[in-house]
Amino acid sequence: MRIRCPYCGERGLEEFTYRGDATVTRPETLDQTAEAAWVDYVYLRDNPAGPHREHWYHGAGCHAWLVVTRDVRTHEILGVELAGGPA
């Protein structure tokens, strides 16, 4: 599998580390009222058969965090963007 890093260009998988689901959003508050939202954020994951958005870290290259859209059935990469937006 090869990932086209927006900064470095196409690189092999050995340069990247998978850092988890990019579709979940951290709850705004630490209040007790948000407990269900926190459980969802920390533990609950969808398991889609098809395109999925994931965080990848380009640790052996530009050290950028990326959001990679990948079809988990075929490993086809449908899109890569910087997680922090354009620098």
């Binding site: 900064y7 290259g61 530009c62 050290h63 950028a64 910087l82 922090g84 620098a87």
Partner: peptide, 15 residues
Amino acid sequence: LAGQTVGFVGTGPGQ
């Protein structure tokens, strides 16, 4: 990119 006395190499976004 070389400058007059200092050259700069891009190593990552903003780096």
